[in-house]
Computed example of a mutant assay.
Amino acid sequence: MRAGGRSAGTPTMKVSIPMSGGRGPRTDARTGEGIGKSRLSRLLSRSPKRSSLVAGEIRSWIITRGLGPGDTLPNEKAMIESFGVSRATIREALKELEVQGLVRMKTGPNGGPVVAGSGSQEALQAIQNFCYFEKVTIDDIYELRTFFEVRLVRSVVGHVDEATFLRLEELAALSAAPAEDQETRRRQREAEFEFHTTIAGRSPNPLLKMMIDVLAGILVNATARDSSRHHMHCEWSHENGRYHAEIVAALRRGDGEAAAALMEEHMGQAHRQLQLVYGDVSLEDIALGRQDAD
């Protein structure tokens, strides 16, 4: 059962945590017996960071057993007994997994650690934080974005259905239309990025799709909501719409090479436009409105 998750209170639920490479014995989720205690003991002798090792064991268990969002993990008491570590270590390990977006803590009578899953939103937040701390610039983003976008558009040839084509054409037309106010322009900018994430949604490669989603999300957060610059974006909106329409036409023809060439041109054009607006300041400065400070 995935809709509501498998409850820790369900007596028929059986799970196991691998010991030293095998799948391990089947174990009741309420007791957590069978968690890789001997394997953990060997690892602990080489590393002082016990909580990270426990977190790694829990992560491996989730993946190996095919647990999904909503599935309940063994409770705190069971983990303490199975791993042979303190309550503080278990809580630190669970907090580490919670920060990573893999586990969430459920409250209430049947509360405890629950699988939260991990997707593009968690990756977006983590990579966006990295970009801010490392002073990543527009140049850095577009070096990576161009690489992925060109490969993406080749990968979706033959995978785009009619409903997606119609949505792409709608988004391209929205980009090309004149914007009467800042709110309309903001929506246009978000639609321009949605064009790319919509194409990504048809990719057979889930990792490529996630990377496009993450890079677009970073740019939306840093630039599309910068209302003070929307009047400058208006100057090239029509050009964005033209590129988008031509990319859709190439995909309809099944011409992946033409679509890729157009996408590479489009990425170069978009890169130059943002350079003109923001220069070489970091994404953090753009997001915080500090691009005029120097």
Rank of each mutant, 00 (worst) to 15 (best):
G5I: 06
G201D: 09
A200G: 01
G5R: 00
G4V: 03
E76R: 11
D139M: 08
F165E: 11
F148K: 09
A222G: 10
S16L: 08
A222M: 10
S60E: 15
Q125D: 15
V277A: 04
R151L: 09
A172Y: 06
S20F: 13
Y243C: 03
E183R: 15
V277N: 08
R145G: 02
S120V: 14
S41D: 15
P74L: 00
V281A: 04
R104F: 04
H244K: 00
E98Y: 02
D28M: 08
W61S: 13
A55G: 12
A216W: 02
R186G: 12
K106G: 01
H159E: 14
G111F: 03
G4F: 05
G108V: 08
H230I: 00
A216V: 12
A287M: 07
E239P: 03
K37A: 10
G108Y: 10
M19H: 10
R65G: 02
E143M: 05
V150E: 12
A176Q: 15
V220G: 10
K77D: 10
E235A: 11
M1N: 01
D292T: 03
G254N: 01
V114T: 07
R272A: 15
E180L: 11
F130P: 07
G84T: 09
I80C: 00
R6C: 01
V160Y: 04
L276C: 06
I247F: 01
D226G: 00
L67F: 05
A163R: 13
G32Y: 06
G268N: 14
F83I: 03
K14F: 12
R253S: 01
R154P: 09
L171Y: 14
E76V: 04
R39H: 04
R252F: 03
M232E: 15
G5W: 06
Q182I: 14
E235W: 06
L219P: 02
Y142K: 05
V214N: 00
G68P: 08
P25L: 12
N129S: 14
S16P: 06
L40I: 05
F130G: 07
K95M: 08
G256E: 01
G32R: 07
I35V: 14
R26K: 13
D255T: 09
C234N: 11
I127Y: 13
S120T: 13
A8Y: 05
T146D: 02
T27D: 00
A55K: 03
H231I: 09
L166W: 06
A78Y: 00
W61R: 04
G101L: 01
S20G: 14
D139H: 12
M13H: 07
R185W: 01
E81G: 00
P69V: 02
R253L: 09
D28A: 13
S60G: 15
L102G: 00
Y278A: 01
V136F: 06
S82L: 00
I199Y: 07
V15Q: 08
M79D: 04
A88F: 10
I17Y: 15
G112P: 13
L166F: 03
A270Y: 10
A258I: 09
P25G: 11
I286F: 04
S52G: 01
E76G: 00
G108A: 05
R242T: 10
M19L: 12
P25Q: 11
M210G: 07
L208W: 01
T137R: 08
P204Q: 05
C131W: 09
L53R: 03
G4K: 08
W61L: 03
V103G: 02
